[in-house]
Design a protein around this nucleic acid. Structure first.
Lengths: 338, 338
DNA sequence: TCTTGGCACTCCGGAGACCTGAGTGCCAGA
DNA sequence: TCTGGCACTCAGGTCTCCGGAGTGCCAAGA
């Protein structure tokens, strides 16, 4: 009974604090939310909540502020992801439908997320590891120089130039192209790499084949590609308030360190579930006052990559969660169609 | 005679202010720089400089701060670009030589510039307009679906999917591929687009040809590509000092608006000359306290794109100019080789 | 047992007063 | 033309004071 009201109080505190950015007191609380009890009662509840570690006082004669634990309870039990409005859904659709290629999809998603949440948005490019090979193209630039283009199901294109030891004719090139494509098209890249190695053996270590295969395998296992990430809405950092050095600077640094960002987004294995990391819960001491709302996305059932928003712990969780989920779904659908 | 000393005083003021970030007074000036005159003399000079608008006082009993006009004189007449140290040159070489493709070159350049100058670095991807076509590849995904890949001399790859009205066989595809490549390889894209349109006429408006040509022309004239830009070192904005709202926020916003950024870097037509835009000299009111040091770069004599750094007007101009020039030169050389 | 009004208490943060030190402008003399 | 001297200005740190918001706790009521 009182337990229920206490949770209502906690929810009210979180909601108020998120909008006002100021510690919230018992009086303001009963006024703004129709709690139906007196400030004194709320005070008792607040004391209890504080004992349990959900809220805290910046100093004795101030209102209360949610702790990380309080936010956690809030997102876990006190909030249901509110669906986007029809207008917002339409905006998402129009913006994303205009995308011409993978790069564009990612860029637009980042902007969109940043706009919707007024937060910093982060979108990981679909990783190679899950994708399949759509086509390999070999283009002779000069007789001893080859442009190798690897096209993946996610729409990514990797290209490398190979210097050959011997000259190679157009006919040989066509043969090689056919053989290679027969071996790898439709395979996920891990298997494709194995198949390619088999080719070299089958070709009696033909040096041209070997060179091309080498560069393809290298392109497939290129970890740099796994780390590609788009960031947008950094200007929203202004909304962090004044804690520039303690909060904004570390975050700015993190935004440039893609490895760090990836860790923040969460390991790509977690699937399409919406995850929320609040303040200290993450691995980075310096980012104790930031939260991350992220989810996986990608065509089919497999989550290929992750996207999300990063903001102050004092952020609009329901809104962010709704936006992240909506964008992820829509992007997934688009990638599905492509 | 005194004129000369006045300039020396101005230079000293700029140098001191850049390092200390605090208004500099007459006494500190004669102490730190061996000016060989008394503070009183310097004060007279300062008064004169202030009359001419090169420096200003934040308030009556404070030291002097350079104005934009003062910085302008400083970069125009009081500074020679100091060459990079051997160690720095080596660092540039090692970092940039490791790049595997165009994307990588740009990414690395941005990081490098940001590190060298401890400023926000901006690198524009080489624009399409000046580049030539290296190859066009047509790949049948399904009988009525074609992947068109456009490969440019700058190393950029554009790809589009075309839906065809009619099925097309592998033989037809090979023909088309040959025809198209014969028409466009080696041409700069403006001419290539014209040549392509001629093809459609010559083919009696064959719908497949028309569809492929359409998408190629579209890819060539895609302005989105002209606006691609990489940004790095945003964390260095912390060095801006405390003027968060007035200086950092507008800049953060500008960094996301690539159109704005391009304008800041300067029109791409200015060639390889090093340009410095100081404070209010630019078109943006909000960026009155930021300066831009930029130059063109690219293979051959033509400047294909621009790169530079953005920082507070109170920045190390000689250092930034040297770094920007050095990186631009090295990147140009790399692109030349490729 | 829970809720409520009352009351004493705490303490942040803004306003005002004060002072110091850095820096200036100007003048008269070298 | 330079220099030393002197009076003047003023930002910004420190100190104090005070009001108001908010609390905790208690005793009475439901």
């Amino acid at each position: 009974m009182q337990e229920e009201r206490r949770l209502a109080v906690l929810r009210a505190i979180v909601e108020d604090y998120v909008t006002t950015e100021e510690p919230v007191g018992s009086k303001a609380l009963v006024e703004r939310h129709g709690l139906g009890v007196s400030p004194a009662t709320v005070r008792n509840d607040m004391a209890a909540l504080e004992d349990e570690g959900y809220i805290t006082q910046p100093h004795t004669s101030a209102g209360r502020v949610p702790t990380d634990k309080g936010y956690r309870l809030f997102v876990d039990r006190l909030t249901t992801v509110k669906p986007m409005s029809a207008a917002e859904k339409r905006a998402i659709a129009t913006i994303l439908d205009g995308a011409v290629d993978l790069d564009d999809v990612v860029q637009r998603s980042v902007r969109l997320l940043a706009q919707l949440t007024r937060q910093v948005a982060v979108v990981q490019y679909p990783t190679l590891s899950r994708s399949t090979v759509r086509h390999v193209e070999l283009i002779g630039l000069t007789p001893t120089r080859l442009l190798v283009v690897l096209i993946l199901s996610t729409g990514r294109v990797e290209q490398r130039v190979v210097e050959l030891a011997a000259e190679v004719g157009e006919a040989d090139l066509a043969d090689l192209r056919t053989v290679v494509n027969r071996a790898v098209v439709g395979e996920i890249i891990a298997d494709a790499a194995a198949a390619l190695r088999g080719l070299v053996v089958a070709s009696d270590d033909n040096p041209t084949t070997a060179a091309v295969v080498d560069v393809l395998v290298e392109a497939m296992s290129d970890h740099r590609s796994d780390e590609r990430i788009a960031v947008g809405g950094a200007a929203n950092l202004a909304r962090f308030g004044d804690h520039f050095d303690s909060a904004v600077r570390p975050l700015l640094e993190a935004l440039e360190e893609h490895v760090v960002l990836l860790k923040l987004l969460g390991e790509a294995t977690t699937g399409e579930v919406l995850t929320v990391r609040i303040g200290h819960e993450g691995p980075y001491q310096e980012l104790a006052s930031t939260s991350v709302v992220a989810t996986g996305y990608g065509p089919g059932d497999e989550a290929f990559a992750r996207l999300g928003v990063v903001g102050p712990t004092r952020m609009d969780y329901p809104g962010s969660m709704a936006a992240v989920r909506a964008v992820a779904r829509y992007v997934s659908r688009i990638l599905d169609e492509a």
